[in-house]
Amino acid sequence: MKELIEYIAKALVDSPDEVVVMEVEGEITSVIELKVAKSDLGKVIGKQGRTARAMRTILSAASTKLNKRAVLEILE
């Protein structure tokens, strides 16, 4: 799941080198933390949080398939 978010985030931002993704895995729920350059924050959040929502939607679809749950947190 980490790779999924990492790929999408890197493709969206202007400074892909500064994208850091960490995954804290739990029994059922894992938390994925996304960190990007300050100037790119808007790019991964999007207008009214639309980009962030789209990423979360895809993330839940992907984890549903594995009978798991994943939460995406965008760190400031």
Partner: peptide, 21 residues
């Protein structure tokens, strides 16, 4: 139907992100 999602949400999310990129 996993890729479609509820009311097409997943499909729309994919479309939105690819288009954005």
């Amino acid at each position: 139907g996993l890729l479609i999602g509820k009311e097409g949400h997943t499909l729309n999310a994919l479309q939105y992100l690819v288009s954005k990129i």
